[in-house]
Every structure is written in structure tokens, then in C-alpha cells.
């Protein structure tokens, strides 16, 4: 796992968390997408193969890791679709997607 990949994971995760703290629900959803993908990137970094093969440079990558990330991407994709459907239902119920408006006590 080299430094560039680690920084990438950190930046994506941080951006995702920053978006999740926003009041707009669509940004929260985008934030969850970014956060999930940061996790996928982290798992992918486990498959760069250098430590597994005991070499200084990786010449092969671990196929198991690729299968893991694929499964995880599918799951993220499904949940994103579900989240957006729920956001659609919220929009139809409230007319707005601002969480401050929605959470206002009735």
C-alpha cells in the first residue's frame, strides 16, 4: 500500500464525511457514495501484492481483493439506488430536500 493510494483514500473519505455533514439531503447521499468508495479503495490497496509476494515491487495483484471490491461496489450501488428512492419519497412528502426544513418539529 503506497503513500499515494493511502492519501487518495484519506481525501475521498474526508470529502465524503464533509458532504455528509451538509444539510442538503442530496449532498448527504453523495457523501455516502464517496465514503463507501473510499472503503472500496482501501480494500483494493490490500491487493497490490507487494507484501503478499514478498517482493519490493508488485508484479501481480491479488484477484480475491478484486472480487471483494466488486461485491462491495454492487452493494453500494444497490444502497445508493434505495437511498435515492427514499429521497424521492421525502421530496414528494415535503417538497424540499433540506434536512433543516424536514426536521423542524411539526
Amino acid at each position: 500500500m503506497n503513500l499515494a493510494l493511502a492519501l487518495c483514500v484519506a481525501v475521498v473519505f474526508g470529502a465524503g464525511i464533509r458532504l455528509m455533514l451538509d444539510p442538503d439531503l442530496v449532498r448527504i447521499a453523495a457523501g455516502t457514495i464517496l465514503v463507501s468508495n473510499a472503503a472500496n479503495l482501501f480494500i483494493m490497496s490490500a491487493g497490490t501484492g507487494a507484501q503478499a509476494a514478498g517482493q519490493a515491487q508488485a508484479t501481480t495483484s491479488d484477484p480475491l481483493v478484486q472480487a471483494l471490491v466488486l461485491t462491495s461496489l454492487v452493494i453500494t450501488f444497490g444502497f445508493t439506488a434505495l437511498l435515492f428512492s427514499i429521497l424521492h419519497a421525502i421530496y414528494r412528502a415535503w417538497g424540499t430536500l433540506d434536512s433543516h426544513e424536514i426536521d423542524r418539529p411539526e
Binding site: 439531503l25 447521499a29 455516502t32 465514503v35 444502497f79 437511498l83 427514499i86 419519497a89 421525502i90
Partner: peptide, 14 residues
């Protein structure tokens, strides 16, 4: 119901 479902979903996805 739909509002808390979004809350539930986002926190548990995290």
C-alpha cells in the same frame, strides 16, 4: 416514517 428511514439508512450505511 420516510424521514426517519433516511436517517436510519445514512447512519447505518456509515
Amino acid at each position: 416514517h420516510v424521514r426517519v428511514s433516511a436517517t436510519f439508512m445514512v447512519t447505518n450505511i456509515l
